[in-house]
Design a protein around this nucleic acid. Structure first.
Lengths: 225, 225
DNA sequence: TTTAAATAATGATTTTGGTCATATTTTAAA
DNA sequence: TTTAAAATATGACCAAAATCATTATTTAAA
């Protein structure tokens, strides 16, 4: 079992502000988990009772609508804390967390986080800041959803993914999603996402190889109308 | 000039956790403002340098999209703090705040809030909680935007407004918005909002009198498809 | 009180995107 | 390897909502 005091991942989230002794205590009560692609980490309505620190992999935060369609609200990535909001509000999960690829996470029980929130100002300020960032992101997504076309949102999603996950040696996006995932991020039908990706390909904006996607002309993607 | 120590509005937001001496200090440096309906409190990109405590009235938080359409992201009401997110992130405003009706607000300079955030755990926890609530609300709006029809969103907006602002003696919503405002909340064209409200009226779901709207059949509104 | 401007209402038309159907390809399991 | 299932692709059609146009009504300003 790895030690939090020595874990570099905490540099990327609020845990960086914890003191040595707190980290030692967390090490002794945390649990590490390996999660397979597609596995559910927690579901909407579930009591989480802690937060997950993402050591490796990507997780989709989704919500199922009454009509059976799934919306991907946000992607949580390596270094992020998962479940902060529910913990702070002391509520059950509002979203479902599903592994987008194989993941490695540590689960830190609620009382440890609460303990530090109530004693360590730097820690709670960090938490506050990351929540503020998420809020800004969400507000901007609302505006995009309301005012941009599906095509524009898909183009922006591709650019966002490259920005946040980078590309491999051949220029393909490091993150590999199904067409259905793209549709669920953009908020459209799977067929529409497929059709638009085909169109982007035909127009030379992207190249594809199976599920892998490469951005060929980011300037044109930015200008999509 | 009213005194924060004696102001009951602070019970509705994080300021309730401040100590007497902090409130006294805020009283001496805050400024009170009366804001006319339609006036801009701050604009996207502006440095706010503090938070506004809403003593009276309602404020629209909007964002202008490149195509010139305005989206109302959230309504901020009596008792709320306005500008928290920008202050915490130490960023310029991400949204524009416009008075939806005549307002009375107090402006509290940034350094006062920061001072308390860094010393008063209860205050920062309250701030954290309200930010978490806003985040949850925003996430749910994203899902609604992606998966519900304009008609459903409009119906939900009407129910939400009654829930949050109540109705007058005759059953009309206490909050009075233009059809354009409705469109900008729902994320649709003004004509579409007008058309759907007319339809709701024809079907007996609502009654209208000028801009005022009365919900006649909330069960049917909940079931709109 | 008159006039201008803003807001609301409604029709006609077009566009976007959803749905349904079917075929092909890819992936994973037996 | 064979086979079944999942994912991708594309066509045809339909519905929701946007746009454009015009008129009526309300509100605010001169």
């Amino acid at each position: 079992m790895s030690k939090c005091e020595q874990c570099i991942i905490r540099q990327f989230n609020a845990l960086k502000s914890l003191h040595k002794e707190d980290l030692v205590r967390i090490t002794s009560c945390k649990t590490s988990k390996v999660i397979k692609k597609g596995a559910v980490i927690f579901e909407e309505g579930e009591n989480i009772n802690g937060v997950f620190c993402i050591r490796e992999g990507i997780c989709k935060l989704t919500k199922l609508s009454p009509n059976g369609k799934e919306q991907i609200v946000r992607l949580v990535i390596k270094g992020d804390l998962l479940g902060q909001r529910s913990l702070v509000s002391n509520e059950v999960a509002n979203l479902t967390a599903v592994a987008a690829n194989d993941m490695e996470v540590c689960f830190i029980p609620k009382q440890e986080i609460v303990h530090n929130l109530s004693r360590n100002i730097n820690f709670s300020m960090d938490m506050l800041k990351s929540m503020a960032d998420e809020l800004k992101l969400s507000e901007n997504i609302i505006v995009d959803m309301a005012q941009k076309t599906v095509k524009q949102r898909l183009a922006e999603t591709l650019l966002y993914l490259r920005e946040n996950f980078g590309e491999d040696i051949n220029g393909f996006l490091n993150i590999v999603l199904t067409r259905e995932d793209y549709a669920n991020i953009v908020g459209t039908a799977t067929e529409s996402a497929i059709r638009l990706l085909s169109q982007f390909k035909k127009e030379g904006l992207i190249a594809t190889e199976g599920k892998k996607i490469k951005i060929e002309n980011s300037e044109a993607l930015k200008l999509v109308e």
